[in-house]
Design a protein around this nucleic acid. Structure first.
Lengths: 161, 161
DNA sequence: TTAATTTACTTAACTAGTTATGCAAATATA
DNA sequence: TATATTTGCATAACTAGTTAAGTAAATTAA
């Protein structure tokens, strides 16, 4: 770890380092669910959390909230439907829309799942211990990117030399 | 951005947030190279940086340095070979090993590429402005994970309740 | 010096995202 | 009110990573 090339490269390896950590966490989570014999995916918890605030959602609402593409949402939702965690009905006033709701199975399993997510939350707190300000820093980084994205900045920086 | 669900969820959305940022940067970088008509991938710069310190490398050395799986390295290297940025020769004393080196084409293109990477480095510095300590925080986070990974922590936290 | 183990690389099948494209329903506009 | 635009969802093809399993060469151990 001491002579970690990502550490040496600093700014140049920032993205790769974020990816390394998030991939590591993702595959850990998949492995965890497998070991606990839960037929759910990492990131479904985000969907469940959204349903806490509003019991009917559409694909578009989810894509907007997560800031991921619609095709990505469709894949997640289709899998949740296939595993019978979600049910969908057509909107009566706008037949393009699918109204999504948690199924009975989902609600039934919720207490068990929430225990795992709570343990997950604690685990993240442990991992971030002493470095909790990273959460606000990530906010600010996303803010900077939304003002001018990476590509635009590089093009600008290529010009002024 | 103000009512960003990831922000509300705090610890529970930490991994998703890292993924969101790193994906955003990755696709920006791909788009950038396309616009600049450079037939290289994001992350090749890490390989090039390794070759600055040592002009012959093996697959395993790269996988170890980046802490990514061997199949991932093979895919990157094969593409670099296919695009003629790398050449490989069999190790004389150990025929399992491939000795990898930058090609003449790679060395020729290096000055042009380095301009882009330098503009990239500046762009990351801009994006992180005022939040540079995130780099050390990421070090510490990877340190924590290496002591006990996410899965192990969740299993532990599930037990002690 | 044969047998067992480890190492270096490879291949296959999968995953969670992307962009590009398309279609049909709803809405806005001439 | 016909036409143009926008919206909501869907599909296809691609990408950068993963794990699992396998092969052949090198090394270690009996």
């Amino acid at each position: 770890m001491e002579n970690d090339i990502f550490r040496e490269l600093k700014y140049l390896a920032f993205t790769a380092r974020l990816k390394r950590i998030s991939d590591n966490m993702l595959y850990n989570a998949k492995d965890l669910y497998k070991e606990l014999e839960l037929d759910i995916d990492p990131n479904w918890h985000l969907i469940f959390m959204m349903f806490k605030e509003k019991d009917t959602l559409t694909m578009t609402e989810i894509a907007d909230a997560f800031q991921i593409s619609q095709p990505a949402v469709i894949k997640i939702i289709n899998k949740m439907k296939q595993k019978e965690y979600l049910i969908s009905t057509k909107d009566a006033t706008d037949s393009r829309k699918q109204l999504l709701q948690l199924s009975a199975k989902a609600k039934e399993n919720l207490p068990k799942l929430e225990k795992v997510w709570e343990a997950g939350r604690k685990s993240i707190m442990e991992i971030l211990e002493g470095n909790e300000t990273i959460l606000e820093q990530l906010d600010e980084i996303e803010n900077q990117i939304s003002k001018m994205n990476y590509k635009q900045r590089v093009l600008k920086n290529l010009q002024d030399d």
